[in-house]
Computed example of a mutant assay.
Amino acid sequence: MRRPWVGKFVLLSAIWGGSFALIKVAVDAGVPAVWVAFARCLFGALALWAFCAVQRQGVPRDRAVWGHALVVAALLNAVPFTLLAYGETKVSSVLAGVFNATTPLTTLVFVLLIVPQEKVTGAKLAGLLVGFTGVLVVLGVWQGLGDDVLVGSAACLGATTCYGAGFAYTRRFFSGGPHSAGALSAVQITCGAAQLAVAAPLLGGVPAWPGWPAAAALVVLGAAGTGLAYVLNLDVIRQAGPTVAATVTYVTPLWSTALGVLFLAEPAGWNAVAGGVIVVAGVLLARKPANRPVGQERTQPLVRADKPGPGRRAYGSPHTTTRSRQ
């Protein structure tokens, strides 16, 4: 059976997995974390607006949309992008990529809190417990934690917590309406760039030229990881459905680990690999559907893959709007 989305899925997972190595290149060159986050949003917004122009997608003019976009941008872009970049000044890109796999678990926590349709089940609670155990294994708590590892890990987990809150908020307040996903994504990332344009000079000072490798890493990180990836993610959702698209979260740690080891010579201890597997197991357990009586209607997904029309909205992963995401 022909599956045209498979190539896009692999490319998407590689782009998001490679984002952690690109962040590491930038912060190791001395780029302040908040400026890394700003570059991601700036170049991502430019790429998304170019996509919207080619597709002739209109700009949302509803004030409520822009108001919600400001909140979503803070939770899914400005704050977590800064925290991830700061975390990678303390820990490897390998660990940052593994920690990012906890995003579906933090999302579940906030969804249970603010989305009335979601019900607490034993599987979800067990999945959260298993996922938390996986985080402890990744950290290697039995070995003791140095200050840098503790601070860096906390920053990375703080980013995934922001993602969780942002995805839940998006599901309730920002995922409906007649606007295309591309246009709303462009609005969201633009809001993130505006927020960081104010914060970056205050928190990071005036950045120095980091050199061509770091500058290139920032352009690719924004244009591909926060621009092209959003478009690919939308295509995968429309062609394969949101459930399949969400599984990209399970693949990105493989890319982040491989690229960190091969190109940055970072160590990948057994506990990072084992802990990552345990985290993914917790995610799978938490996603296990509850038993429903025959005839009971299922909750409608955010997007119907069979009729993706221009007004449909969908989100998929860590680094996109309402993804299981970046």
Rank of each mutant, 00 (worst) to 15 (best):
A272R: 08
Y315I: 04
F173L: 05
S92K: 06
L113H: 10
F43E: 02
G204L: 11
L48M: 14
V71W: 00
L184S: 07
V111C: 12
A223W: 10
G311V: 02
W270S: 12
W35N: 10
V141R: 05
S93W: 05
L218M: 15
Q55V: 11
S185E: 10
P267F: 00
T243I: 06
R56H: 11
S180M: 08
V111F: 02
G18L: 10
L70I: 08
V54A: 15
L22H: 03
R172C: 04
L42D: 00
F263G: 10
K288A: 12
F43V: 02
L105G: 05
G158P: 10
F99Q: 06
R313G: 07
V115M: 04
K119Y: 04
A33V: 11
L95D: 04
G17N: 06
L95E: 08
F173M: 08
A290K: 06
R313C: 02
A194Q: 00
I189L: 14
F173C: 06
A223V: 06
P293T: 02
D235M: 15
A29K: 05
A217M: 08
L218E: 11
S19T: 11
Q300G: 01
V279D: 04
G309D: 15
F9W: 14
A197N: 03
D147S: 13
A290D: 08
K119R: 15
G222M: 09
H68R: 10
G166P: 12
L262Y: 01
